[in-house]
Simulated assay, not measured.
Amino acid sequence: MTINLQSVQATMLIPLWGRATASEKNPDILYDKEAIEIIASCEVDFTEIAKTFGEYGGISYIVRARKIDDTVRAFIQKHPRATIVNIGAGLDTTFSRVDNGTINWYNLDLPDAIAFRQTLITDTPRNNCIAKSLFDVSWFDDVIFNKEDGILFISAGVFYYFQESQLKEMLRAMATCFPGGELFFDAESKFAVNISNRTVEKTGNKGAKMYFYVNNPKVLQSWSPNIKVVSSESYFKGIPVSKQWESGTRLMVRLVDLIKMLKFVHLRFLQ
């Protein structure tokens, strides 16, 4: 199975590379055994990705995965039989790190992305794929869950690629269909989105332009009376800066939080 490298879906290879390479060197932040195994087994040349994203890029991917892991673990501590929906899953491996033996997990992504995923990661009875666009609301019916068991939506590095108007309509629909549910995702500032676009273009990918940004998360509450911001946290909060990292990496980690380039946003859909 091949994938069009001039597409948004191709960006699933970048965080996979980041989690595999950076987690081997920083297991105290995250150790992604499955990503390491996939990288070792798949015939993809990551030379250009490694050259473009470097050490800081890898660190940013394992920190994002760690924050999502922590959020999922906290949620399933309260809701051990919860349903988790991973929006724009790509080659994400979170399930293998957080599974408690009773959660139900769905990986939502475009059909060609899911086809590529399934050549590398096999579905299991509690870890299934939905091959549909986020904006094809028929996927709502594919998610089987009990309201009392809780439902959490996670999304990593995905919302950037959509227009605000598209996301506003989708989140309104999700809030209506999944009252009591929660959503955790990462967001960039407008300044950071501009930088990201230039970085991705350096890899030769012209089909993955980013649009959506969040400067003030409270604005999201104006989208619907059913949307509440639970929290907004700076990207590297709580992550110790290693003296082993390159000076440029240490500087970027501090700068990103100082000028609020990246953040994590946690929403709840009110009942």
Rank of each mutant, 00 (worst) to 15 (best):
T71V: 06
T71N: 01
V72C: 07
V72M: 07
V72N: 05
R73M: 14
R73G: 11
A74D: 15
F75D: 15
F75P: 04
I76C: 10
H79S: 08
H79L: 02
R81F: 14
T83I: 04
I84M: 13
V85Y: 08
N86H: 13
N86F: 05
I87N: 06
G88W: 06
G88C: 05
A89N: 09
L91M: 15
L91T: 09
L91V: 14
S96F: 14
R97V: 07
R97D: 10
R97Q: 12
V98L: 06
D99I: 02
T102C: 00
T102D: 02
T102V: 01
I103T: 12
I103V: 15
N104I: 11
N104M: 04
W105Q: 10
W105L: 07
W105R: 05
Y106M: 07
L108H: 11
L108G: 08
P111S: 07
D112Q: 11
A113D: 05
T119A: 10
L120R: 14
I121Q: 06
D123Y: 12
P125F: 00
P125W: 04
R126I: 08
N127T: 10
N127L: 05
N127P: 06
N128G: 07
A131T: 03
S133W: 02
S133F: 01
F135K: 08
D136I: 10
D136P: 04
V137Q: 03
V137F: 02
V137D: 01
S138V: 10
W139M: 01
D141N: 12
D141F: 04
D142Q: 09
V143T: 02
V143W: 00
V143R: 01
V143C: 00
I144E: 00
I144M: 00
F145N: 04
N146G: 00
N146V: 04
N146D: 07
K147I: 01
K147D: 01
K147F: 02
K147M: 01
D149M: 06
D149G: 08
G150Q: 15
G150D: 12
G150A: 15
L152I: 08
I154T: 15
G157N: 07
V158T: 14
V158M: 04
F159Y: 10
Y160R: 03
Y161E: 07
Y161A: 05
F162S: 04
F162A: 08
Q163Y: 05
Q163W: 06
Q163H: 11
Q166N: 13
K168E: 07
K168V: 11
M170Y: 03
M170F: 11
M170L: 15
L171Q: 10
L171K: 03
R172F: 09
A173D: 05
A173S: 14
A173Q: 15
M174C: 06
T176M: 09
